[in-house]
Write a protein that binds this DNA or RNA. Structure first.
Lengths: 140, 140
DNA sequence: GCTACAATCTCCAGCGACTAGAGGATCAAG
DNA sequence: CTTGATCCTCTAGTCGCTGGAGATTGTAGC
Protein backbone atom coordinates (compact mmCIF):
# COMPACT_ATOMS: atom_id res chain seq x y z
CA UNK A 1 0.00 0.00 0.00
CA UNK A 2 1.74 3.06 -1.30
CA UNK A 3 1.01 6.28 0.51
CA UNK A 4 1.56 9.54 -1.30
CA UNK A 5 1.82 13.20 -0.41
CA UNK A 6 -0.76 15.84 -1.25
CA UNK A 7 1.53 17.17 -3.98
CA UNK A 8 1.71 13.77 -5.57
CA UNK A 9 -2.05 13.37 -5.34
CA UNK A 10 -2.39 16.77 -6.93
CA UNK A 11 -0.14 15.74 -9.82
CA UNK A 12 -1.80 12.38 -10.32
CA UNK A 13 -5.32 13.74 -10.43
CA UNK A 14 -4.74 17.18 -11.92
CA UNK A 15 -6.32 18.78 -8.88
CA UNK A 16 -4.79 21.83 -7.24
CA UNK A 17 -3.65 21.35 -3.67
CA UNK A 18 -6.01 23.95 -2.16
CA UNK A 19 -8.86 22.24 -3.98
CA UNK A 20 -7.98 18.92 -2.37
CA UNK A 21 -7.98 20.54 1.04
CA UNK A 22 -11.25 22.24 0.15
CA UNK A 23 -12.84 18.89 -0.72
CA UNK A 24 -11.64 17.58 2.60
CA UNK A 25 -13.07 20.59 4.43
CA UNK A 26 -16.52 20.06 2.93
CA UNK A 27 -16.39 16.35 3.63
CA UNK A 28 -16.10 15.02 0.08
CA UNK A 29 -12.74 13.50 0.89
CA UNK A 30 -12.25 11.93 4.30
CA UNK A 31 -9.56 13.28 6.58
CA UNK A 32 -6.46 11.32 5.65
CA UNK A 33 -3.90 10.01 8.11
CA UNK A 34 -0.90 12.23 8.75
CA UNK A 35 2.81 11.80 9.15
CA UNK A 36 4.46 12.54 12.48
CA UNK A 37 5.04 16.03 11.12
CA UNK A 38 1.37 16.55 10.32
CA UNK A 39 1.48 16.02 6.57
CA UNK A 40 -1.38 14.32 4.79
CA UNK A 41 -0.87 10.83 3.42
CA UNK A 42 -3.15 9.40 0.77
CA UNK A 43 -3.72 5.78 -0.15
CA UNK A 44 -4.85 4.47 -3.55
CA UNK A 45 -8.45 4.50 -2.42
CA UNK A 46 -8.25 8.24 -1.85
CA UNK A 47 -6.69 8.66 -5.29
CA UNK A 48 -9.60 6.81 -6.86
CA UNK A 49 -12.13 8.78 -4.88
CA UNK A 50 -10.61 12.10 -5.90
CA UNK A 51 -10.43 10.98 -9.51
CA UNK A 52 -14.09 10.09 -9.34
CA UNK A 53 -14.89 13.51 -7.94
CA UNK A 54 -12.89 15.31 -10.61
CA UNK A 55 -14.40 13.21 -13.34
CA UNK A 56 -17.91 13.95 -12.15
CA UNK A 57 -17.08 17.66 -11.82
CA UNK A 58 -15.70 17.67 -15.36
CA UNK A 59 -18.98 16.14 -16.47
CA UNK A 60 -20.72 19.07 -14.87
CA UNK A 61 -22.14 17.44 -11.76
CA UNK A 62 -22.54 19.66 -8.75
CA UNK A 63 -20.83 18.91 -5.49
CA UNK A 64 -24.08 17.85 -3.86
CA UNK A 65 -24.82 15.38 -6.66
CA UNK A 66 -21.34 13.97 -6.24
CA UNK A 67 -21.91 13.71 -2.52
CA UNK A 68 -25.00 11.64 -3.33
CA UNK A 69 -23.04 9.40 -5.70
CA UNK A 70 -20.32 8.88 -3.14
CA UNK A 71 -22.92 8.10 -0.53
CA UNK A 72 -24.39 5.46 -2.83
CA UNK A 73 -20.99 4.01 -3.48
CA UNK A 74 -20.26 3.84 0.21
CA UNK A 75 -23.25 1.49 0.57
CA UNK A 76 -22.67 -0.90 -2.31
CA UNK A 77 -25.49 -3.25 -1.39
CA UNK A 78 -28.24 -0.67 -1.66
CA UNK A 79 -30.54 0.11 -4.59
CA UNK A 80 -29.39 2.43 -7.34
CA UNK A 81 -32.61 4.10 -8.49
CA UNK A 82 -31.37 7.33 -7.08
CA UNK A 83 -28.17 7.19 -9.12
CA UNK A 84 -30.18 6.67 -12.27
CA UNK A 85 -32.38 9.61 -11.42
CA UNK A 86 -29.36 11.80 -10.89
CA UNK A 87 -27.81 10.77 -14.19
CA UNK A 88 -31.04 11.20 -16.12
CA UNK A 89 -31.62 14.65 -14.65
CA UNK A 90 -28.13 15.59 -15.57
CA UNK A 91 -28.49 14.34 -19.12
CA UNK A 92 -31.53 16.54 -19.52
CA UNK A 93 -29.65 19.49 -18.14
CA UNK A 94 -26.80 18.85 -20.57
CA UNK A 95 -29.19 18.69 -23.52
CA UNK A 96 -30.75 21.97 -22.46
CA UNK A 97 -27.34 23.58 -22.16
CA UNK A 98 -26.27 22.33 -25.57
CA UNK A 99 -29.46 23.63 -27.15
CA UNK A 100 -29.02 26.99 -25.50
CA UNK A 101 -25.41 27.27 -26.61
CA UNK A 102 -26.33 26.35 -30.17
CA UNK A 103 -29.05 28.97 -30.19
CA UNK A 104 -26.50 31.43 -28.88
CA UNK A 105 -24.08 30.40 -31.53
CA UNK A 106 -26.57 31.01 -34.29
CA UNK A 107 -27.45 34.38 -32.84
CA UNK A 108 -23.84 35.44 -32.62
CA UNK A 109 -22.98 33.84 -35.94
CA UNK A 110 -25.13 36.38 -37.70
CA UNK A 111 -22.40 38.84 -36.99
CA UNK A 112 -20.48 39.17 -40.20
CA UNK A 113 -16.83 38.43 -39.47
CA UNK A 114 -15.81 40.99 -42.07
CA UNK A 115 -17.68 44.06 -41.11
CA UNK A 116 -17.95 46.35 -44.14
CA UNK A 117 -18.23 49.31 -41.83
CA UNK A 118 -15.68 50.50 -39.47
CA UNK A 119 -17.78 52.46 -37.09
CA UNK A 120 -19.58 51.21 -34.05
CA UNK A 121 -22.87 52.80 -35.06
CA UNK A 122 -23.27 50.54 -38.07
CA UNK A 123 -21.45 47.52 -36.72
CA UNK A 124 -23.48 44.32 -36.97
CA UNK A 125 -21.59 42.86 -34.03
CA UNK A 126 -23.12 45.48 -31.80
CA UNK A 127 -26.43 45.20 -33.56
CA UNK A 128 -26.84 41.51 -32.99
CA UNK A 129 -26.40 42.11 -29.31
CA UNK A 130 -28.81 45.01 -29.27
CA UNK A 131 -31.47 43.55 -31.49
CA UNK A 132 -34.08 42.02 -29.36
CA UNK A 133 -35.63 40.11 -32.25
CA UNK A 134 -32.54 37.96 -32.48
CA UNK A 135 -32.90 36.57 -29.00
CA UNK A 136 -32.47 32.78 -29.01
CA UNK A 137 -35.49 32.22 -26.83
CA UNK A 138 -38.17 34.44 -25.47
CA UNK A 139 -36.48 37.06 -23.37
CA UNK A 140 -38.60 39.53 -21.46
CA UNK B 1 -40.52 60.51 -21.61
CA UNK B 2 -41.92 57.94 -19.23
CA UNK B 3 -39.97 57.34 -16.10
CA UNK B 4 -40.42 54.04 -14.30
CA UNK B 5 -39.59 52.63 -10.90
CA UNK B 6 -37.00 49.96 -10.24
CA UNK B 7 -39.78 47.41 -9.75
CA UNK B 8 -41.19 48.21 -13.13
CA UNK B 9 -37.74 48.02 -14.71
CA UNK B 10 -37.30 44.69 -13.01
CA UNK B 11 -40.56 43.38 -14.48
CA UNK B 12 -39.90 44.72 -17.95
CA UNK B 13 -36.42 43.25 -18.24
CA UNK B 14 -36.78 40.13 -16.13
CA UNK B 15 -33.96 41.30 -13.90
CA UNK B 16 -34.18 41.04 -10.14
CA UNK B 17 -34.06 44.31 -8.25
CA UNK B 18 -30.85 43.53 -6.32
CA UNK B 19 -29.24 42.66 -9.64
CA UNK B 20 -30.15 46.05 -11.06
CA UNK B 21 -28.65 47.76 -8.03
CA UNK B 22 -25.62 45.51 -8.38
CA UNK B 23 -25.14 46.57 -12.00
CA UNK B 24 -25.34 50.15 -10.88
CA UNK B 25 -22.81 49.54 -8.12
CA UNK B 26 -20.27 48.12 -10.54
CA UNK B 27 -20.86 50.90 -13.03
CA UNK B 28 -22.63 48.96 -15.77
CA UNK B 29 -25.74 51.07 -15.33
CA UNK B 30 -25.34 54.77 -14.63
CA UNK B 31 -26.75 56.20 -11.43
CA UNK B 32 -30.32 57.14 -12.30
CA UNK B 33 -32.07 60.28 -11.12
CA UNK B 34 -34.15 59.95 -7.98
CA UNK B 35 -37.50 61.15 -6.73
CA UNK B 36 -37.68 63.62 -3.86
CA UNK B 37 -37.95 60.57 -1.61
CA UNK B 38 -34.78 59.02 -2.99
CA UNK B 39 -36.29 56.37 -5.26
CA UNK B 40 -34.65 55.51 -8.55
CA UNK B 41 -36.30 56.59 -11.78
CA UNK B 42 -35.42 54.98 -15.09
CA UNK B 43 -35.95 56.32 -18.58
CA UNK B 44 -36.35 54.22 -21.75
CA UNK B 45 -32.65 54.51 -22.46
CA UNK B 46 -31.88 52.78 -19.18
CA UNK B 47 -34.38 50.05 -20.05
CA UNK B 48 -32.63 49.47 -23.37
CA UNK B 49 -29.23 49.44 -21.73
CA UNK B 50 -30.30 46.90 -19.12
CA UNK B 51 -31.94 44.74 -21.78
CA UNK B 52 -28.69 44.82 -23.71
CA UNK B 53 -26.77 43.77 -20.62
CA UNK B 54 -29.16 40.91 -19.88
CA UNK B 55 -29.12 39.77 -23.46
CA UNK B 56 -25.35 39.71 -23.56
CA UNK B 57 -25.24 37.88 -20.22
CA UNK B 58 -27.72 35.32 -21.55
CA UNK B 59 -25.39 34.85 -24.48
CA UNK B 60 -22.69 34.07 -21.99
CA UNK B 61 -20.62 37.22 -22.17
CA UNK B 62 -18.78 38.19 -19.02
CA UNK B 63 -19.39 41.48 -17.29
CA UNK B 64 -16.05 42.87 -18.44
CA UNK B 65 -16.83 42.03 -22.07
CA UNK B 66 -20.17 43.77 -21.70
CA UNK B 67 -18.43 46.75 -20.19
CA UNK B 68 -16.27 46.84 -23.32
CA UNK B 69 -19.32 46.63 -25.59
CA UNK B 70 -21.06 49.41 -23.71
CA UNK B 71 -17.93 51.51 -23.88
CA UNK B 72 -17.88 51.02 -27.63
CA UNK B 73 -21.53 51.92 -27.90
CA UNK B 74 -20.98 55.06 -25.89
CA UNK B 75 -18.61 56.23 -28.64
CA UNK B 76 -20.62 55.45 -31.74
CA UNK B 77 -18.22 57.10 -34.16
CA UNK B 78 -15.24 54.95 -33.27
CA UNK B 79 -13.97 51.79 -34.95
CA UNK B 80 -15.45 48.43 -34.07
CA UNK B 81 -12.54 46.03 -34.54
CA UNK B 82 -12.55 45.39 -30.85
CA UNK B 83 -16.21 44.38 -30.83
CA UNK B 84 -15.54 41.86 -33.57
CA UNK B 85 -12.62 40.46 -31.61
CA UNK B 86 -14.77 40.03 -28.54
CA UNK B 87 -17.51 38.31 -30.50
CA UNK B 88 -15.08 36.02 -32.30
CA UNK B 89 -13.37 35.03 -29.07
CA UNK B 90 -16.72 34.31 -27.59
CA UNK B 91 -17.82 32.19 -30.53
CA UNK B 92 -14.71 30.08 -30.09
CA UNK B 93 -15.45 29.68 -26.41
CA UNK B 94 -19.02 28.62 -27.20
CA UNK B 95 -17.81 26.03 -29.70
CA UNK B 96 -15.43 24.63 -27.13
CA UNK B 97 -18.20 24.42 -24.55
CA UNK B 98 -20.55 22.70 -26.97
CA UNK B 99 -17.91 20.15 -27.87
CA UNK B 100 -17.22 19.46 -24.23
CA UNK B 101 -20.90 19.05 -23.42
CA UNK B 102 -21.38 16.68 -26.32
CA UNK B 103 -18.45 14.60 -25.16
CA UNK B 104 -20.02 14.59 -21.71
CA UNK B 105 -23.31 13.56 -23.13
CA UNK B 106 -21.80 10.61 -24.93
CA UNK B 107 -19.99 9.54 -21.80
CA UNK B 108 -23.11 9.70 -19.69
CA UNK B 109 -25.27 8.23 -22.43
CA UNK B 110 -23.45 4.96 -22.07
CA UNK B 111 -25.33 4.53 -18.86
CA UNK B 112 -28.17 2.19 -19.61
CA UNK B 113 -31.41 3.90 -18.63
CA UNK B 114 -32.91 0.59 -17.60
CA UNK B 115 -30.43 -0.89 -15.24
CA UNK B 116 -30.93 -4.66 -15.06
CA UNK B 117 -29.39 -4.68 -11.62
CA UNK B 118 -30.75 -3.03 -8.60
CA UNK B 119 -27.66 -2.73 -6.51
CA UNK B 120 -25.09 0.01 -6.52
CA UNK B 121 -22.17 -2.39 -6.88
CA UNK B 122 -23.24 -3.45 -10.36
CA UNK B 123 -24.90 -0.23 -11.41
CA UNK B 124 -23.62 1.06 -14.73
CA UNK B 125 -24.56 4.61 -13.76
CA UNK B 126 -21.96 4.49 -11.05
CA UNK B 127 -19.58 2.61 -13.26
CA UNK B 128 -19.54 5.17 -16.03
CA UNK B 129 -18.52 7.78 -13.54
CA UNK B 130 -15.86 5.61 -12.02
CA UNK B 131 -14.44 4.15 -15.18
CA UNK B 132 -11.53 6.20 -16.19
CA UNK B 133 -11.43 4.73 -19.68
CA UNK B 134 -14.70 6.44 -20.48
CA UNK B 135 -13.33 9.91 -19.93
CA UNK B 136 -14.29 12.19 -22.82
CA UNK B 137 -10.80 13.56 -23.21
CA UNK B 138 -7.51 12.73 -21.65
CA UNK B 139 -7.91 13.24 -17.96
CA UNK B 140 -4.93 12.89 -15.67
C1' DG C 1 -57.25 61.15 8.65
C1' DC C 2 -55.91 56.44 9.79
C1' DT C 3 -54.48 52.01 9.10
C1' DA C 4 -52.58 48.30 6.32
C1' DC C 5 -49.56 46.71 3.30
C1' DA C 6 -46.61 46.95 -0.70
C1' DA C 7 -42.52 48.91 -2.56
C1' DT C 8 -38.31 50.98 -1.94
C1' DC C 9 -34.04 52.43 0.45
C1' DT C 10 -29.10 51.19 2.40
C1' DC C 11 -26.01 48.04 4.17
C1' DC C 12 -24.15 43.70 4.93
C1' DA C 13 -23.63 38.79 4.46
C1' DG C 14 -23.86 34.56 1.78
C1' DC C 15 -23.91 31.30 -2.29
C1' DG C 16 -20.81 27.73 -5.14
C1' DA C 17 -16.52 26.07 -6.18
C1' DC C 18 -12.69 27.16 -5.84
C1' DT C 19 -8.01 30.15 -5.70
C1' DA C 20 -4.32 32.79 -3.72
C1' DG C 21 -1.51 34.69 -0.25
C1' DA C 22 0.77 35.28 4.46
C1' DG C 23 3.60 33.38 7.69
C1' DG C 24 5.53 29.41 9.62
C1' DA C 25 7.30 24.41 9.89
C1' DT C 26 9.62 20.57 7.77
C1' DC C 27 11.87 17.68 4.21
C1' DA C 28 15.56 16.18 0.80
C1' DA C 29 19.77 17.34 -1.60
C1' DG C 30 24.33 19.18 -2.01
C1' DC D 1 24.53 23.23 7.36
C1' DT D 2 22.29 25.75 4.21
C1' DT D 3 19.13 26.18 0.46
C1' DG D 4 14.95 25.57 -1.74
C1' DA D 5 10.94 22.82 -2.32
C1' DT D 6 7.05 21.22 -0.05
C1' DC D 7 3.85 21.28 3.35
C1' DC D 8 0.88 23.29 7.23
C1' DT D 9 -3.15 26.59 8.86
C1' DC D 10 -5.76 30.56 8.34
C1' DT D 11 -7.82 34.24 6.05
C1' DA D 12 -9.59 36.62 2.28
C1' DG D 13 -10.60 37.14 -2.54
C1' DT D 14 -12.87 35.75 -7.07
C1' DC D 15 -17.54 36.17 -10.12
C1' DG D 16 -22.22 37.32 -10.60
C1' DC D 17 -25.42 37.69 -8.27
C1' DT D 18 -29.06 36.86 -4.16
C1' DG D 19 -31.28 37.50 0.20
C1' DG D 20 -32.21 39.50 4.60
C1' DA D 21 -32.51 43.29 8.33
C1' DG D 22 -34.40 47.40 9.53
C1' DA D 23 -35.99 51.88 8.16
C1' DT D 24 -38.71 54.81 5.16
C1' DT D 25 -42.17 55.94 1.75
C1' DG D 26 -46.24 55.33 -1.45
C1' DT D 27 -50.93 53.71 -2.14
C1' DA D 28 -55.63 51.87 -1.19
C1' DG D 29 -59.56 51.15 1.54
C1' DC D 30 -62.48 52.71 5.31
Amino acid sequence: MTLISIGRLSDETGTKIPTIRYYESIGLLPEPPRTASNRRLYDPHAVARLRFIRHARDLGFEIEAIRDFLGLMDHPGGPCHHAHGLVRQHLEAIDAKIAQLQAMRHAIERVSPNCPYNRVEQCPAIEVLSDHALCPDGCP
